[in-house]
Design a protein around this nucleic acid. Sequence first.
RNA 1: CGGGGAGUAGCGCAGCCCGGUUAGCGCAUUUGCCUUGGGAGCAAAGGGUCGCUGGUUCAAAUCCAGUCUCCCCGACCA
Length: 475
Amino acid sequence: MAERITPRSEDFGQWYVDVVLNAKLADYSPVKGCMVIRPTGYAIWEKIQQQLDSMFKETGHVNAYFPLFIPESFLHKEAEHVEGFAPECAVVTHGGGKKLEEPLVIRPTSETIINAMFTKWIQSYRDLPMLINQWANVVRWEMRTKLFLRTTEFLWQEGHTCHATEKEAREETIRMLNIYKKFAEEYMAIPIIDGIKTESEKFAGAVETYCIEMLMQDGRALQGGTSHLLGQNFAKAFGTKYLSKEGKQEYVWQTSWGVSTRLVGAIVLAHSDDKGLVLPPRLAPLQCVIIPIFKKDFDSSKLLEKINELKDKLKDKVSVKIDDTENNSPGFKFHQYEIEGVPVRVEIGPKDFENGVFTIARRDTGEKFTIPFKDAPKKIEGLMEEIQNAMFKKAKDILDSRTFTMDDYEAFKTKCEEGGMFLLHWCGRRECEDQIKADTKATIRCLSFDYKKEKGKCICCGKPSERRVHFARSH
RNA sequence: CGGGGAGUAGCGCAGCCCGGUUAGCGCAUUUGCCUUGGGAGCAAAGGGUCGCUGGUUCAAAUCCAGUCUCCCCGACCA
């Protein structure tokens, strides 16, 4: 039985955890920092997987699987890569009761071991492009964790591609970023800011890192996905070469890109209200629940007949479930499905039956209305799209209303406490980036693709700047 | 690693300051009756090494010392 969710606007972190736990998406595990994903939460992840997978396949990518263990020496082959990842690696030193000759790192990401295979697989320009994706778990030993947003072990998808030219690799990097953007906006109903990361925030081992950034309801930003242009860094480290048309040995140009179970957390943080989870219809494992209201002196079979009829008409287009259990009251069920975020609820009791209508309730707005039996299927089907769009618009309004353009450092420092996205002039120097982070905890989320050329002064040091960049405190 | 908080029934908590009946409450569970239009009601029942170790005392959930664990904030976060 779920506990009631209490509104706790003053403590958003706790509110978030309450939503996750009450909606039964996940549990804390016996192993600290790790998370147990419950069936309800996993079902959302499955919807995400399904959709992304089909988008990857449309663009020619195929799935494969690589080992969980990576020889420690592999990580050392790329200098920046090992520097970035070594501190957060879990390392296996023993196996079969003996100390291993070479420790095995539990993959924090798979560039190295995949490149070791690419080197064997790729001989000629005819083998390119090679477009591989892997669905897997990875481990990163973070100091502090939070359900879905940052856990020691998490599930993700990592794409790894090889191309003959830098141009092709660059196109691929952006193509995949755009797929993430489309997925976030059209499926998760969360507007994003896309752009490039600064040198200090980019992936260890990449030439460039692109990302989609989201703003959550608590005013903090969340990195939703990244797409890296790896250049020839890993190719050189692992000797991944091909024979070109011209008969020359060339290093391949590579990309990698990934999103994780963090996206489930993003949905929770972006859309939930004090009643619980609110799921966008396109990713809701259950889109519509039908609840009959029985009365002692009313023939319940008449209600069941009506709702089965409705279910049959809906079932090809909308995922629907009838909850005709008798051990809980209707009120209890209403709350239960609201906590779980089911987009649409249909009720029918004797009164409705006599009037020839269903009562329909929207999860996103809480709005309740009746509709004649014959119009119900079409209406409910239409509601899915309507709710999906309304949720995106609501999230977009939050992003817009909490994006601030500022030029005064002191004012920014104060305003930053409330959260939000900030468009600030920045001189491009690491020193200022670090200074601002030290002063405000805000980091450069990205240099967005969408910007106006505009002469200004760096908010920190006053040196000239050509454009504004996105700053925010992030999760 | 630093700062704060918490460990008492399956879950959530009160009791502790100021030691003293048989350690209490809500939810959940079991049984019976009755019910279902926003988290039902009534009646009864079961369920506890009070985190652990030691000390003080006639007497410890309560006081003292130590210890373990968890949570929150910070440092960290390709």
